[in-house]
Write a protein that binds this DNA or RNA. Structure first.
Lengths: 195, 195
DNA sequence: GATTGTATTGAACGCGCGTTCAGATAATCT
DNA sequence: AGATTATCTGAACGCGCGTTCAATACAATC
């Protein structure tokens, strides 16, 4: 009994990360065992160590990949014309992107404490990078006299917290469409930092 | 070797809850062992079971106590005159209350998944109760023509998410005083739901 | 100062944990 | 077809987990 028929590195690797992401988000990093992840994939626990050096690195890779995707997706987003359009773009992008990856978003906000100092710092830096992009929009808008936030740094954190909160209550097929959710939040954000 | 000198139920009980709260918040419920909690208090693990039937109930009691305190404290808060003053009171109260209990707030948002269905439902009901109190203020303000939120339910969730976010970045002795933080957030909230 | 009740110890229970590794099999290459 | 390499198994390692419980030491009461 050893190698399975049809087994491939390119298949098992992603399946492990997928199972780990789902299980970590659902039950918490510490509550999920390597054996559970392996069972989900249909493999023995030892096989996981062909794909990750240890459990913490598995978590780190998930968080890192999520943050990289987030920033890359925002970079690829068509930029609006002027600070107001850019701000609207950010609001709608953040909601849309996060609603498509609820598990990764939850992990990124809840399991940072399970990382060692170096890994923690790496993820934190990426998060700050993302936050700075919003702050830049707010500062530009302020300079142009289009926006007025009492403190652009705090305002960007407040806006992101508010937008990320959508993930805690939004349910597919519920009362509100994604489009409508975007409209509602854009209305509130726009007014909150209006000049 | 058994009972320690100077040991009392009224002392050990709170100390266990305090240690559990701190450790759960810091490392996560699943990552903390009963033996760690006991060591923090200075007793053996077995002694914890004089104060809780099991580990999950210990967590539940912490969350329940926090939610009860939150609602009781808001009830005891002097009510402002009219929806706008009440909203301002809510914003400042929520920030102040949460900044005084960062561990309990973090636990309440991160460790609900470790509760069984009944315990989970109990905490969720308390949370909805609290959220409804804010929504009522918004609806009253809307009815009086003083406020205009596109959706009062969503607006209340958005405001709470935004305010609770303060706990993730606020540091004592940092750039901003608590008073100033309250001012900044009240400015944003007021404008976000302004008529 | 003896008695009673409360608070605690310390050992034990079975179990699952993260991780390692020699051996076995399937896929691939020559 | 044979050799090589990539992939996976299954067993094992020592360890710490949540929980129970008889024994015991202190505090409170009489």
């Amino acid at each position: 009994m050893a190698r399975k028929t049809g087994s491939h590195s390119e298949i098992t690797g992603p399946r492990i990360r997928g199972a780990a992401l789902r299980l970590f988000a659902r039950h918490g990093f510490a509550a999920v065992s390597m054996r559970q992840i392996a069972a989900e994939v249909g493999v023995q626990a030892g096989a996981l160590y062909l794909y990750t050096p240890d459990k913490e690195t598995l978590l780190f890779d998930l968080l890192k990949a999520h943050m990289d995707e987030l920033i890359a997706a925002w970079e690829a987003e068509p930029k609006g014309d002027g600070p107001l359009a850019r701000l609207e773009g950010f609001v709608r992008f953040h909601i849309r992107f996060n609603l498509e990856r609820p598990d990764a978003v939850f992990l990124s906000y809840m399991e940072l404490r399970n990382l060692g100092p170096d890994n923690f710092a790496a993820i934190e830096a990426l998060r700050r990078d993302y936050e700075t992009r919003l702050e830049t929009i707010l500062r530009d808008g302020q300079a142009a006299g289009l926006l007025a936030a009492p403190d652009t740094k705090i305002a960007s954190l407040a806006i992101i917290a508010m937008l990320t909160g959508v993930n805690t209550w939004y349910r597919e097929g519920g009362r509100l469409s994604r489009q409508r959710v975007g409209d509602i939040y854009w209305d509130m954000v726009r007014k909150a930092v209006a000049a």
